[in-house]
Design a protein around this nucleic acid. Structure first.
Lengths: 237, 237
DNA sequence: CGGCTCCTTGAGGTTAATCAATCCTGGTGG
DNA sequence: CCACCAGGATTGATTAACCTCAAGGAGCCG
């Protein structure tokens, strides 16, 4: 079984490529280059000449921009099944930088080859449009959120996390207790993701704790939400 | 000459629909509904059931979200030739609200009809992808900018304005003097667009004036950039 | 038991929002 | 022609949020 076989499996599991038939999947697999990277590797840098976009098969990555003052603006995080740098299909340089946050397996699609495929397969183009539409909505919300105070941003993040983890793929052990969420990143990364700094995030968590909204057990990545109502109120600034 | 004829003209002038042949343009024109709105009209509201997306033929509009605290987050402005609410093709409600900032002529494309066309015309899908890619880059920059201090945001805005107005369609009288830009919106709208409030914007303009970076003549919408270098430095935080 | 790295806590300063006048400027009517 | 009015724009004083810098834990691995 050639590499492209397991590649096709990964493609099949991706919303972007669902609704494609075997023939189309194989054509895709044929132009996909598998990439494996350890944690904290740079995938591409803002301004680099674009060489294609990526499907994240396994691991977590972040898209960010370096701010002139040395800080970094995290645009978004991505996990398995997510596609990133799609915009590069129509731009000749990357508009942001990207780095793995854990060990990652990726598939890279060369711009030219993928565009050819796109022209031949309307369904693929439409799926990509749908994926980009989702991203647009996400970024729109992101802009909105940055105008809210930090506690509201954190509250919204926690609520979203809770909503996502309520219906988990659940091929895992824990039955995902309603009020308990697991932070998928370090506090440092979360602070960046929320547009703030670790110190402020820490204090905000503390305020939530003292307000009886959340509780943190020994494991610092587990957060129990005690009062959804209050959290929702906090999310409204 | 039916309405669809002048509609087709408007379509032809739009990047999104360039590269389509006559037949395709007419098909598009057939499903486009002309809409005329006076200034300050609501086009759609966040949460409304989506009824299609828009091409702005004439005028200026803004896309914004109402924040829980009463303020509003301006996501972006749009002008003639711009398309907005494209994401709605794949979402069943509008993710943000939209309002005219001046008298406007628009073309509305119904979701269902446009999707049909999209399936039939790969080139159309690819053009739309390109447009969405551009928007993604724009929103990415927008997220980044909101993490910069207000003076840097204003500086970047002015620099972008200057860059745009350097190569104007120039079917107008003024030869677009190198250092003079015209604000396309009121200060109030600009403040919202920059994620701040009029008072702060005013003070920031004042700082720029006192630093010898800009000058404002009698007409308050005209700004002369005296020191591009300093402005660029300000844009870097 | 160091020596990491990550997170937290503390003191202080800066930015920008808020609240509230005041100032223009253009339009209106006396 | 000028007084007046309404809107936006500016300015001022104050407050609150949050960043900065810096010092302490706390866990983890050699």
């Amino acid at each position: 079984m050639p590499v492209s076989h397991q590649t096709a499996d990964a493609l099949r599991a991706t919303p972007l490529f669902s609704r494609l038939d075997e023939r189309q999947l194989l054509a895709l697999a044929a132009i996909a280059s598998p990439v494996t990277l350890p944690a904290r590797s740079s995938i591409f840098m803002q301004g680099d000449r674009s060489s294609g976009f990526y499907l994240l098969v396994e691991g977590r990555i972040k898209i960010y921009k370096l701010l002139p003052n040395g800080r970094t603006a995290t645009i978004r995080h991505a996990g398995p099944g997510d596609v990133f740098a799609e915009a590069t299909l129509f731009q000749d340089t990357y508009a942001a930088s990207s780095e793995t946050m854990s060990d990652c397996r990726l598939l890279r699609f060369g711009t030219h080859e993928f565009l050819d495929l796109l022209r031949a397969e309307p369904q693929l183009a439409i799926n990509l449009l749908a994926a980009m539409a989702e991203l647009l909505v996400f970024l729109t919300r992101r802009v909105e959120e940055l105008l809210l105070p930090v506690p509201a941003r954190l509250a919204r993040y926690l609520l979203r996390l809770a909503a996502e983890q309520l219906v988990p793929p659940s091929d895992e052990s824990e039955p995902a207790s309603p009020g308990i969420v697991r932070l998928p990143t370090s506090k440092r990364e979360l602070a960046a993701r929320l547009g703030t700094i670790p110190a402020t995030l820490s204090r905000t968590f503390d305020r939530f704790k003292r307000a009886g909204v959340i509780r943190m057990s020994g494991d610092h990545e587990l957060i129990e939400i005690l009062d959804f109502g209050k959290l929702q109120r906090l999310a409204q600034e």
